[in-house]
Nucleic acid binder design. Structure first.
Lengths: 282, 282
DNA sequence: GCTGTTATGAAATTTAAATTCACTATTTAG
DNA sequence: CTAAATAGTGAATTTAAATTTCATAACAGC
């Protein structure tokens, strides 16, 4: 059993009746689905087309097209690829673990393509591009992405802010306006601190961009723009290892996109910074 | 070179001017094409949509959809991996950049396997395992890895320290002893701040672990233990995007390895932390 | 029993792929 | 050297697929 199929099996009990019927059909006829249209699959599993789309989102994939692609990949890779650390072994040496880490991280980054919605991405780039201030916030494992983002956007000349301190953030947000962007980073989308600050920022008029998994979480529902990360396996042992990689991939994309727009303008500043760094021999 | 790509090359001379332009574009950006629509590919190769369809038929494929599928299959088989953003294109949309970022990050992580020395890794794990304090230091793009590491090892119950502030670090290091570990993170291995602190830590008796590229850099030469990251392409535009991924992969490996050793002991603390978090509904 | 929420499909909209058609440039036949 | 034939092209259209919106029905909580 491969990862996507397993995933469907796992969530099957939580699905609604109609979505469950789709799941059943897909599990029984996986090789047929990649060539179908929503209409066909809808007919065959006895639901409406709209429910097909909803089914895709329920299993954490952003579009029907991506779903078909992921399923196809799943079927061709007979490789018993582990995408999590379930097969951790007592005898594993650090070097063995190293290769597992490589594998998990690579898989996580690969699956980013499944959950991202290109329209939302375009909206996010647009919002950031014209932003006055950009505030990033993430706690726990997601703070890494926030810190990284803050650094990158500062380099691009933005007024870019982050802090791990909830109370510090509370003092920042009142100054936000509709020209500003608040980027909330939370894998689960349920983190209370993140939610509260996001709502606060929205009340001040800022655009709330969420970097979170595709799910029915409050953050997902309430954000103005959603950049979805895939539902990579979570395990207490590995904590947020793979989900951090997916968050950073999203951040990198935003950075590259903005650079692409403002790049010419900041190039001189880049060179300035570099030559000054060389002068100081740092 | 594989079948489809080769096929395109073969027929290229026989194609008409406009179709030839498509062929050129596809050969230059094969990994970008599978995510495009006819419209996009038409724009980027400077032809009309109709010509895209005709191009597909010219190379013996019945539809644009099939063409994309075939190309994708082709690419997964061979790895024509670009490991840099050299193929950045003026017309790239955020979604295009997203796929390039995925590709670059994936490649970077993959190539980690090439540069890591298993003995050095074992030594590093050994040193950290019995360490009293662990200090991480990285500046610029490498600070992300330091921050991430500090958080991870704190979760494991270590006295784990990092700061971006050179002077703060100066006040930390005098307290290090031979039971402590100083982890220096620098892609180039030449960063002055990192070097100075590393030497200082070594003078105090701490074991210096370097996470750096395999090169003749001072950091590489002077460190007690070397964990090498691959020499991924550096580019002013992308800064440290791929090298940050490789650093994090090394950090993840250290974390997993240590967890593997001390795991049983800290499991209870993990559960404590989680249930308390749930109590506080954070 | 009312109210708010969730699940659902029908219909409308949006988006992508493919086709048609008209125009141009070039070649070929007379 | 001209006229007809032909190939190559993109604009506009058609067709088809994916996605969103909206109204309704079922249900849970009060």
């Amino acid at each position: 059993m491969t990862s996507l199929m397993q995933k469907i099996k796992d969530v099957l009990p939580q699905l609604s009746e109609a979505e469950g019927r789709i799941g059943d059909y897909v599990l029984e006829n996986p090789e047929a689905v990649p060539h179908m249209t929503t209409k066909e699959l809808a007919q065959k599993s006895g639901v409406s087309e709209a429910t097909i789309i909803r089914f895709c989102k329920s299993i954490g994939i952003g579009s029907f097209k991506s779903f078909k692609l992921a399923l196809m990949k799943d079927l061709t890779l007979t490789d018993t690829s582990l995408t999590d650390f379930s097969v951790l072994n007592k005898k594993d040496s650090p070097y063995d673990l190293f290769h597992k880490v490589i594998h998990v991280n690579k898989s996580a980054i690969e699956s980013c393509a499944d959950s991202m919605d290109r329209k939302e991405l375009a909206k996010a780039v647009e919002a950031i591009q014209y932003a006055n201030k950009i505030v990033f916030f993430g706690v726990g494992g997601s703070s890494t992405a926030a810190v990284d983002a803050q650094y990158k956007f500062t380099k691009l000349g933005y007024h870019s802010i982050t802090s791990l301190d909830f109370h510090y953030m509370l003092s920042i947000i009142p100054h936000l306006t509709e020209n500003d962007v608040f980027v909330a980073i939370s894998t689960s989308g349920k983190t209370k601190d993140v939610l509260e600050l996001t709502r606060f920022a929205q009340r001040k008029g800022a655009t709330a961009i969420a970097i979170t998994t595709l799910s029915k979480s409050p953050l997902y529902k309430e954000a103005d723009i959603r950049l979805c990360t895939p539902n990579v396996e979570q395990d207490f042992r590995i904590g947020s290892i793979p989900s951090r990689m997916t968050q950073l991939t999203v951040i990198d994309t935003l950075y590259m996109s903005i650079f692409h727009h403002v790049g010419e303008k900041v190039l001189q500043q880049y060179y300035d910074a570099r030559s000054e760094m060389e002068n100081l021999r740092r």
